[in-house]
């Protein structure tokens, strides 16, 4: 796995057994929270439907039998619904599927049943501390959010234990809006690694999308390369990109 100090995007390069690198875009806590919200809504809706159907069936079968069935439905909805969906063909719960997310191993391979169990059972720990009591009440997902933000790949506790990450299923092509062509072209002071060349050319290809200030902000991250910050840094960066693309 490629470890570049101080990467500022969420693209993860993962080397496959075939010796090739693929890029996975890791999903952040906001989108995952939304997916969780959808899933909880689906679970509650399912429980309500089951309660209604079993309530009607209770007239024929006896209310105690259906009460027992309701407990089982509750158990499977609560603990096993995410496990089965994530270990299945989708690799995602319906909520994640809707938002275009998928759970994979850190190696990029689909998750196994055991990993899916681990990450979903540990959601209980991620849900702590609970609202209205330390361990009983409404989960706040406090621990999950904290570990998500503290880890490089947005992993909650369950993800860390199971060795999984949540990614975007389909990588959106990066919008390419080149800035006006640069006037100058400049040789970089030192030889650049392929990763760095890619970053510099990507900067040029996408710079048209950003405001002046945003360009400067991003270019400041590369001040060691350009030797300048602010607007001069941007122009210098564009000049280097021009040199890399045209003059080589």
């Amino acid at each position: 796995m490629e470890e570049v100090a101080g990467r500022i995007d969420t693209l993860q390069a993962i080397e496959l057994a075939e010796g090739v690198e693929v890029r996975l875009r890791i999903a952040g806590p906001l989108l995952r929270g939304m997916a969780l919200g959808i899933d909880v809504a689906i679970q509650l809706a399912g429980l309500m439907v089951a309660g209604f159907v079993l309530g009607l069936a209770g007239i024929a079968m006896g209310s105690l039998v259906t009460a027992g069935m309701m407990s089982l439905v509750w158990f499977f909805t609560w603990w096993w619904y995410p496990v089965f969906f994530e270990a299945g063909r989708w690799g995602a719960t319906p909520g994640k599927k809707m938002l275009g997310l998928r759970v994979v191993q850190t190696s990029g391979a689909p998750v196994t049943f055991g990993q899916s169990m681990l990450r979903n059972f540990l959601r209980f720990a991620d849900g702590l501390p609970c609202f209205g009591g330390l361990i009983v009440g409404i989960p706040t997902m406090g621990f999950g959010l904290a570990t998500c933000l503290a880890t490089r790949r947005f992993q909650r506790l369950g993800d860390l234990a199971a060795g999984t990450v949540v990614i975007y299923d389909k990588l959106q092509p990066e919008p390419s809006v080149p800035a006006p062509p640069p006037m100058a072209s400049a040789r970089p002071a030192a030889a650049l690694r392929p990763e760095e060349v890619r970053a510099v050319t990507a900067f040029r290809e996408r710079a048209g999308l950003w405001s002046e200030d945003r360009r400067a902000e991003i270019a400041d991250h590369a001040h060691e390369l350009t030797g300048a910050t602010g607007q001069p840094g941007v122009s210098r960066m564009m000049a280097i990109a021009h040199w890399l693309q045209e003059k080589r």
Binding site: A67, G68, S71, L72
Partner: peptide
């Protein structure tokens, strides 16, 4: 002794104890 109470308790134990 009521009909179904065994099954009800079975479901409850699954949900509660395995949980």
């Amino acid at each position: 002794e009521r009909f179904g109470s065994n099954f009800m308790m079975f479901g409850h134990y699954i949900q509660n104890n395995v949980g």
